[in-house]
Amino acid sequence: MTNLKPIALILCTLFIATNANLIEETCMQTPNHGLCVQYLQADPHSSDSDVTGLALIMVNVIKTKANNALVKIHQLLQGSPEPGQKEALNSCGDRYNAILVADVPQAIASLQKGDPKFAVDGANDAAIEANSCENSFSGKSPLTNDNNSMHGVAAVTAAIVKLLL
């Protein structure tokens, strides 16, 4: 029994190294390698995921970012938004809500069914929604960082999902 421990340790190390290679190889094929590696390595499930699993992790990052943006939008609306920003903030709230109720569920369902085309559409739409939010402000947007972050994550997600097509 004691002789099995070193073998198990070697196999476990090999598996982790193989998945680190999968993350690296996958992220090299995205528009933002560093961002991709950052989010995938931060998720403990990435160590035993295939490319579909990595795509699902990134869809969950989109979901988290959309939720965070909505919290910020609600906080800004409860404060005293600058003149002309209330309408833009409401529009952004609608856009981020659409990401949560349409894009994310569509992407998850299509990845789980093995039909990734609709997951690409969902990720691309999340990027479009973030851009539209940013463009709804006439002047300085209080959501620039959130919108840029969503756009980057959505672009990486779409690129990963495209590897499955």
Rank of each mutant, 00 (worst) to 15 (best):
S80N: 14
S80I: 15
S80A: 11
S80W: 00
P81M: 07
E82P: 02
E82V: 04
E82I: 04
E82Y: 07
P83H: 03
P83Q: 01
P83I: 01
P83D: 02
P83C: 02
G84V: 00
G84Y: 02
Q85S: 08
Q85L: 01
K86S: 05
K86Q: 07
K86L: 04
K86I: 06
K86F: 04
K86E: 07
K86G: 02
A88V: 01
A88T: 02
A88D: 03
A88L: 01
L89W: 02
L89Q: 01
N90V: 02
N90G: 01
N90F: 00
S91R: 05
S91E: 05
S91T: 15
S91I: 11
C92Y: 00
C92M: 04
C92S: 03
G93L: 06
G93N: 06
D94I: 08
R95K: 07
R95H: 03
R95V: 00
Y96G: 07
Y96D: 04
N97D: 07
N97S: 11
N97A: 05
N97W: 00
N97M: 05
A98T: 15
A98Q: 12
A98H: 14
I99E: 08
I99Q: 13
I99F: 10
L100E: 12
L100M: 13
L100S: 10
L100A: 14
L100T: 13
V101A: 13
V101E: 15
V101M: 14
V101N: 15
A102S: 14
A102G: 12
D103C: 11
D103E: 15
D103I: 12
V104P: 06
V104L: 10
P105Q: 09
P105S: 09
Q106L: 13
Q106K: 11
Q106A: 10
A107E: 11
A107Q: 10
A107Y: 04
I108G: 08
I108Y: 10
I108A: 06
A109K: 12
A109T: 15
A109Q: 11
A109V: 12
S110A: 14
S110K: 08
S110I: 14
L111N: 05
L111W: 00
L111A: 09
L111P: 03
Q112Y: 04
Q112G: 05
K113W: 03
K113F: 04
K113T: 13
G114Y: 03
G114I: 08
G114L: 02
D115A: 14
D115L: 12
P116F: 06
P116M: 03
P116W: 07
P116K: 05
P116E: 04
K117L: 09
K117D: 08
K117T: 13
F118K: 13
A119I: 13
A119D: 09
A119F: 08
A119V: 14
A119S: 12
V120L: 00
V120Y: 08
V120D: 01
D121R: 09
D121P: 02
G122H: 07
G122C: 06
